[in-house]
C-alpha cells in the first residue's frame, strides 16, 4: 500500500500520535509502540531547573527512531507561534512544525487569520509547516497555496472525542488539495479514525483518544488497525448507498 509522504520523507504508518496526558511515561512509550506511529508530537515549554530530574522526552523519542513533530500549542498569535517554531527548530534540530495558532481558550479553534500569517512566514523561513486548521476547504486551499507540506483539519474540537463532525467538508477538502490531508483532533475511538481514512485522508493525528482510554496501549493498537482498515477500504472503493435491498444470493433455482 503506498505510504504517507510528507516533504519527501516516506512513512509506512499513517497514524501520527501525541505524547500528552498518558497515566505515566511507561504507558506512553508502550502506547506509541503499539500504535506503530513513526511521528510523535511534542510541545515546547520552559525548562524548570527546580526539577531537573524530568524525563528527557527528546532523547527517548530519538532513541526509538521516531520523527519528532513539535507543535506551537498554546500560541494565540502568529508572532508567538513563529518564535516557538524557531525555538523548536533550534532545540530539536528539525524543520517540521505542527503549526497551531489558537483563537479561543474554550473551543481551541484555530485563529485562521493569524494561522495564515504564521504559515506564510514559516514557509518562507524554510520550515515544513503542518498546520492544524478548521475543516474549512477554503482555508485548507489557502494553506496549501502558501506552501504548507500538509493540511490538518480538525474532525472535532481538540480532546472532545466527538469524531468527524463534518465528513462532507473533509471530502471536499480531499478534492481541493493535493498535499497530504491529515485529520488532527476530534477522534474518540477506532471507528472515527477509520471514517477519516475512508473519506480519503492520508493520515490521522490523535492523542487524547489513546492517552485517556481506559487501556491506552490496547486503544493504540485499535487505532493502528482502524487507520489501516480505513485506508484499505478507501482504496477498495465503497459501494453506493441505496435505499432498498438488492439480494446478494441467487434468485433462481429456489426449492419449489
Amino acid at each position: 500500500m503506498p505510504e504517507l509522504k510528507i516533504a519527501d520523507q516516506i512513512y509506512t504508518s499513517r497514524l501520527l500520535i501525541g505524547t500528552a496526558g498518558y497515566p505515566n511515561f511507561h504507558i506512553m512509550t508502550e502506547s506509541i509502540a503499539a500504535s506503530g506511529a513513526e511521528i510523535a508530537t511534542v510541545s515546547m515549554r520552559r525548562v524548570k531547573w527546580t526539577d531537573p530530574s524530568g524525563e528527557n522526552l527528546f532523547a527517548l523519542l530519538n532513541e526509538r527512531g521516531m520523527t519528532i513533530l513539535p507543535n506551537t500549542a498554546g500560541c494565540f498569535t502568529a508572532k508567538d507561534a513563529i518564535l516557538t517554531a524557531n525555538l523548536a527548530r533550534e532545540a530539536l534540530e528539525t524543520s517540521l512544525i505542527k503549526l497551531e495558532v489558537i483563537g479561543d481558550d474554550q473551543t481551541l479553534f484555530p485563529d485562521v487569520e493569524q494561522l495564515l500569517r504564521a504559515a506564510e512566514t514559516l514557509v518562507k523561513d524554510g520550515f515544513t509547516v503542518l498546520p492544524y486548521c478548521n475543516d474549512d476547504p477554503i482555508t485548507c486551499k489557502k494553506l496549501e497555496d502558501l506552501g504548507c507540506a500538509a493540511v490538518m483539519p480538525l474532525g472535532a474540537p481538540i480532546g472532545s472525542g466527538m469524531g468527524i463532525r463534518n465528513p462532507y467538508n473533509i471530502q471536499i477538502i480531499r478534492d481541493l488539495v493535493e498535499v497530504p490531508l491529515i485529520v488532527d483532533a476530534g477522534v474518540g475511538t477506532a471507528s472515527d479514525a477509520a471514517i477519516a481514512m475512508e473519506l480519503g485522508c492520508d493520515g490521522v493525528l490523535l492523542n487524547t483518544a489513546v492517552a485517556k482510554a481506559h487501556r491506552p496501549v490496547l486503544m493504540a493498537e485499535a487505532m493502528k488497525k482502524a487507520v489501516e482498515a480505513g485506508r484499505a477500504a478507501f482504496l477498495a472503493g465503497r459501494i453506493p448507498r441505496k435505499l432498498y435491498a438488492t439480494a446478494s444470493s441467487p434468485q433462481t433455482g429456489m426449492i419449489e
Binding site: 505524547t19 500528552a20 511534542v42 510541545s43 515546547m44 515549554r45 520552559r46 527528546f58 524557531n86 532545540a91
Partner: peptide, 28 residues
C-alpha cells in the same frame, strides 16, 4: 530572538535581558 547553540558563548547578556530556555515536553 533565538540564539543558536554555536553563539551561546559569545552572546553576552545585559541588565534586564529577557531569557527564555525551552525544551520539548509531552504534547499533542
Amino acid at each position: 530572538e533565538v540564539i543558536p547553540k554555536a553563539a551561546w558563548q559569545e552572546t553576552e547578556l545585559r541588565e534586564n535581558s529577557d531569557v527564555e530556555i525551552i525544551r520539548a515536553v509531552q504534547g499533542g
